[in-house]
């Protein structure tokens, strides 16, 4: 087990401001505070080499949790062990065994070529020059960023910059990768490349990957295990398929350009197609009855998209 979290909580104290001018002036003299529980009593374990996705609406506590796991924030309560260390102690050996990549923040030096940031990180992590050269070559080859190493970071595109951020974050060969929205703002093509890289990196090095993302595709493609965090609490811990089966077990049978008579079998027209929503067990029976009468139609069976599964799941929680 590489990560062990027990009863983790984080409470922020934030000032409360009244409405309008009067409220502003009042808060000048007598500031009221409110405790916000960003993370409440969260526990989970992660094994070495796993790929795990944190999912949840904005403000659910994903990033806060990630920052506590990486030692940036001190927990209000609970215990965290990552690779055998307490993150908040920020001991050198711990920091050298993890990395954090934040899609919305950057560590590369803005005015200098990425290579300079890499060299600085090499010195700060105390990576042996030979090992550094080897790792850098491999990462550069995997991400195909050879041509941009000499360009100042400010002249790079968002996607190129994210690739360089990944290199900068991985030069010390961490065992645990925390990725906070690593694909945010990237175009689809670049998202696919980054996803592919993370997957490859995980399988080839056995490093543990913990990822948050807004893009369901990141989760669907990358992380077999899912932790759903909602309003600071852990609501689900398990595989994506199990969650889908539980929340949205039905299938959609779509008959492309199907005949109107399908209505007899419970189909309804949608954009010129005939569509029926059925339970998983029902699917095969319904399919055969369609095909027995119209053997030549084009037919497709779909699970509800992940976005819809999640929307339904969160709705279920609040209802």
């Amino acid at each position: 087990m590489i990560i062990d979290v027990v009863g983790l909580s984080k409470t922020y104290r934030v000032p409360v401001k009244g409405e309008g001018l009067a409220g502003s002036v009042k808060s000048l003299f007598n500031r009221q505070y409110r405790d916000v529980e960003a993370v409440k009593n969260v526990s989970f374990q992660i094994e070495r080499g796993e790929r795990v996705g944190f999912l949840g609406p904005n403000g659910a506590g994903k990033t806060t949790t990630l920052k506590m796991l990486s030692g940036l924030l001190h927990p209000t309560a609970g215990t965290v062990l990552v690779a055998g260390y307490r993150p908040k102690d920020r001991v050198v050996a711990f920091l050298r065994s993890i990395t954090l990549v934040m899609g919305q923040k950057q560590q590369l030096l803005w005015d200098l070529p990425p290579q300079e940031s890499f060299a600085l990180n090499r010195a700060m992590y105390g990576v042996d020059p030979a090992a550094y050269a080897r790792t850098l070559d491999q990462l550069v080859a995997m991400l195909k960023i050879e041509p941009i190493l000499q360009k100042p970071v400010r002249n790079l595109s968002l996607g190129e910059r994210m690739k360089c951020e990944l290199v900068a974050a991985l030069l010390h060969q961490p065992q645990v990768l925390f990725l906070d929205e690593p694909t945010i703002g990237l175009d689809v093509e670049m998202q696919v490349q980054v996803r592919k890289f993370i997957h490859e990196y995980n399988t080839s090095t056995g490093a543990t990957v913990i990822l948050t993302s807004h893009y369901m595709q990141d989760i669907a493609a990358l992380t077999p295990r899912l932790l759903v965090i909602d309003k600071g609490t852990l609501r689900y811990d398990g595989s994506l398929t199990a969650l889908t089966e539980r929340v949205a077990p039905e299938r959609r049978i779509v008959v492309k350009g199907g005949p109107a008579e399908l209505a007899e079998l419970g189909f309804v027209p949608v954009d010129g197609d005939q569509v029926a929503t059925v339970t998983a067990e029902e699917t095969n029976r319904r399919l055969s009855s369609v095909l027995s009468r119209w053997p030549m139609v084009e037919i497709a069976v779909e699970s509800p998209p992940l976005e819809e599964v999640m929307a339904r799941y969160f709705h279920e929680g609040s209802a």
Binding site: K17, G20, L21, S24, V25, S27, L28, R31
Partner: peptide
């Protein structure tokens, strides 16, 4: 005006 007030008050 109100924005300026709020801005100043927020940062005592």
């Amino acid at each position: 005006w109100r924005v300026a007030v709020a801005g100043i008050v927020a940062y005592r």
